[in-house]
Design a protein around this nucleic acid. Structure first.
Lengths: 249, 249
DNA sequence: CCACATAACTTGTCATGACAGGTACGGTGC
DNA sequence: GCACCGTACCTGTCATGACAAGTTATGTGG
């Protein structure tokens, strides 16, 4: 009862795949069957299938009905911005424990990331993220003041910060994510319940508005036995992960 | 004079964008104009435009003709498969030192990755990769035997293995890359000239042919101060990096 | 029993036509 | 001069119809 027909068809198929109604490896209904079910022509049906194909949910080729390839691959943008959203798409229960939220002068590292002058006020948030109750990630986020101040009116342990800020009119449009590895410092080790010095997967996230104004900078550290990053690529479909080079000291 | 009509239209537009004929920021011909130019209906024209849009080459919205957004879309595929190619694209000099190349029975981990039975012969390659003479990555690759055997006729210290295998008719069409972090073991530490236990960025690479037959499996460990991975994403163009979940023990 | 040809089914591609909704521009009334 | 409105144009969406090309199952002849 919402948007265009092809979106409704795609949403329905997504739902049926996520719910297990259409098991992985099984064939989808043929185009003509979908046309009958929806009383639609082939155009919207094919558009819906193309959308799922672009998301890597289904595969298959000419002459064969499409096949369910993977169960959960959601919109990578929101997925990458919102831990809560990502966890729920996976069927897991996200959790969080806010260790501290503070207004203080910006740190040198964040100042460079956010293009701020030294000493400007920002909001720093330190959160422990849980998956089904297990600590898997520690998040050190710095928000620019105009955005971060909104967080003091929000219970950070309850909902998704990303969803909350979106509702407040903050447009998180672009993100840059630098992925590397670090050894756990004592704080990391204690909160993540791992030995000090263990290797952690780190994602440094720069999020900015559509206009390019910096919004937040975050240093997220994952337990590598709990979370990893995956890239799928083929010669045809174009992925967007780049291997970049840091300083070679 | 090749493939389907929509591919020819897309290829022509790509070419005109790359050549600068259609400058960045300028508007593309409208759909009806393209229909006239090609004597085609709107279906193939729209399919071509959708392809460019998926590549992030063009943007725009309802009511307005599409606008050229970017001129270049890098081919991350080869970049991700070939260390040599990547380094040269960056203007660096790639180097390599082959520590050992051996034919032996497949290890349990590689057996699962390559869908081989235990005990089957494979070719294992251990290489140290250099950037401007500095060790930055250690590569433990397992090739299935039919492919790996070709490597004994090749000087692994000279050229790109990827380029060599491509020339031999091996089609490396699809790749899956799982990125996480590990502590350096004694071998890693010695070869990469870092302390034992240091955090390393690990990429486990599964490469397969277009038909889906496994070709190689590799465990690559990067010095995180030398190499990191970067993702750029925006709400419009859809990137292909996924955050996936491992076992939470 | 097996190899092979055929038929049914499926997706890929494309033409034609139509309407809805957004944008941009010019003209009109104030 | 300025706000407002209508019109022309554009893209988004969808129906209908058709043919090409690939896959699968079936049936037939050897």
């Amino acid at each position: 009862m919402d948007g265009p027909l092809h979106e409704r068809i795609a949403a329905d198929l997504r739902h049926r795949i996520a719910s297990g109604d259409l098991a992985i490896g099984s064939a989808l209904p043929s185009e003509s069957q979908l046309c009958d079910q929806w009383g639609a022509s082939r155009a919207p049906v094919r558009q819906a299938l193309a959308a799922l194909r672009a998301d890597g949910l289904i595969g298959g080729g000419q002459g064969k009905p499409p096949v369910v390839r993977s169960t959960a691959v959601s919109q990578p943008f929101e997925t990458f911005l919102s831990f809560s959203r990502w966890a729920r798409d996976l069927g897991r229960t996200p959790g969080q424990r806010t260790i501290e939220i503070a207004r203080r002068a910006v740190s040198p590292e964040a100042a460079e990331a956010l293009s701020l002058s030294e000493g400007e006020p920002v909001v720093e948030l330190l959160r422990l993220r849980l998956l089904d109750g297990v600590p898997v990630m520690i998040e050190r986020t710095t928000f620019v003041w105009p955005v971060g101040r909104l967080l003091f009116d929000h219970d950070c342990d309850t909902g998704s910060i990303f969803a909350y800020l979106s509702g407040q009119g903050v447009d998180l449009a672009r993100g840059r994510h630098v992925i590397d590895a670090v050894n756990a410092d004592p704080t990391d080790a204690e909160l993540l319940e791992i030995p000090a010095g263990a290797a952690l997967l780190r994602e440094r996230r720069h999020t900015s508005s559509a206009a390019g104004e910096p919004i937040e900078y975050s240093d997220d550290r994952y337990r590598p036995d709990a979370v990893s990053f995956t890239v799928e690529n083929s010669q045809q479909a174009r992925p967007a992960l780049l291997r970049t080079q840091g300083l070679v000291s």
